[in-house]
Simulated assay, not measured.
Amino acid sequence: MKICIFRIMDEKRIEEIVRKVFQKAKEEHASHSRFALSNHISGQSDLSSKTLERAYDRYIDKKEKHGPPNAESIDLLCRYLMYEDYRDYVEKNPIKGTGREWELIVIMGIAFGTILTTILTLRNQVFPSYDDSSSNIEDKDGFIKKNIDEQLIDTNCMTWSDSLYVRISCDTGPFSKYGTDVKPLNQMELKNMRKVEVDAAYPFFSEDGKPLIWYYRNKDNEHEFFTAPGLHPVNGETLRKITPYIIQTYVPVHSKKENSFIKQ
């Protein structure tokens, strides 16, 4: 239930931002066509016209053939609206409750409760002698089955663990055992976001010149490098795409392993 609500709220927020962006563009540009407005916004920001056209299709024309914009694009949309980033937009534009949000929560809560009750009832019918103290059960043929409760654990959340995201139960709490936020599962971040060690030989750009690494400069003036755009997994700050200047100035010539070998 919690995951569904977050997704609905995020989509509503993004749609609200996209509509405001194109409304602002209409006030600034004579032509109001999708193509002309997208090119105008692209010229005023770091967003590509293709990204803007896809956002127009999804949120204004309601053609859901494209997915939602990534975190970096959403930050850039907010900057076009004169906000620092998405977080700044949300803080300065709180959602005004209409009562319908609570209707949705109540309806989804009832549905979730009904499903959970049905599952527990069926479990008791199928395994009437099930011992809650046991972590496994054995069937009549001697095969070991996993504890039924383990199958019911909600793993639709994730948390940052040192250098990558790991799946975790949404019931773990606001913070995981790693001290990082427990947040709704995002398959793209789970698959692509990694913190990596780099040296001068690392492939920072694709063959067509697109960045493959994004960085963050922490409070100790050290640079942290990541394999996907978006927000820093721990502090939520926006990651910046790598540039030749950053590589030349802050990336070591050799990896840590090579440096250790050279010292020996």
Score class of each variant (00 low, 15 high):
2 K>C: 06
3 I>R: 10
6 F>M: 10
8 I>E: 08
9 M>S: 15
11 E>I: 10
11 E>A: 13
15 E>C: 13
16 E>F: 12
17 I>Q: 03
18 V>M: 04
19 R>C: 13
19 R>S: 15
22 F>L: 11
26 K>F: 07
30 A>P: 00
33 S>H: 12
34 R>E: 10
37 L>N: 02
40 H>W: 06
40 H>V: 01
41 I>A: 04
48 S>Y: 02
54 R>N: 15
54 R>E: 14
54 R>S: 11
60 I>A: 03
60 I>D: 04
61 D>T: 10
61 D>Q: 12
62 K>W: 02
62 K>C: 04
63 K>T: 02
63 K>I: 01
64 E>R: 08
69 P>Y: 07
69 P>L: 11
70 N>G: 08
72 E>M: 08
74 I>Y: 01
76 L>K: 08
76 L>R: 04
79 R>E: 15
85 D>W: 06
88 D>A: 06
91 E>G: 00
95 I>E: 08
98 T>G: 10
99 G>W: 01
100 R>T: 15
102 W>E: 09
103 E>S: 13
105 I>Y: 11
109 G>W: 04
114 T>S: 13
117 T>V: 08
118 T>W: 12
122 L>D: 12
125 Q>L: 15
125 Q>A: 08
127 F>E: 09
129 S>N: 14
132 D>M: 09
134 S>L: 13
135 S>K: 14
135 S>V: 13
137 I>N: 12
139 D>P: 02
141 D>C: 02
141 D>Q: 09
141 D>I: 00
143 F>A: 07
144 I>L: 11
148 I>H: 02
150 E>K: 05
152 L>G: 05
152 L>V: 02
153 I>F: 02
155 T>R: 09
155 T>D: 07
160 W>Y: 05
161 S>Y: 07
162 D>E: 08
165 Y>D: 02
165 Y>G: 03
167 R>N: 01
168 I>N: 01
168 I>W: 04
169 S>P: 03
170 C>N: 05
171 D>V: 12
171 D>F: 10
173 G>Q: 06
173 G>K: 03
175 F>L: 05
175 F>W: 04
176 S>K: 00
178 Y>G: 04
179 G>V: 09
185 L>M: 07
185 L>E: 00
186 N>A: 07
188 M>Q: 12
190 L>F: 09
192 N>I: 01
195 K>Q: 13
195 K>S: 09
196 V>D: 06
197 E>M: 11
203 P>W: 15
204 F>A: 13
205 F>K: 08
206 S>V: 05
207 E>D: 14
208 D>K: 15
212 L>H: 09
214 W>Q: 08
215 Y>A: 05
216 Y>G: 00
217 R>T: 07
219 K>A: 08
220 D>H: 11
220 D>G: 04
227 T>V: 06
232 H>K: 06
235 N>E: 00
236 G>V: 06
238 T>Q: 05
238 T>N: 03
238 T>E: 04
243 T>S: 14
248 Q>S: 15
249 T>L: 14
250 Y>M: 12
252 P>E: 13
254 H>N: 14
256 K>D: 10
257 K>S: 11
258 E>F: 14
261 F>N: 11
262 I>S: 09
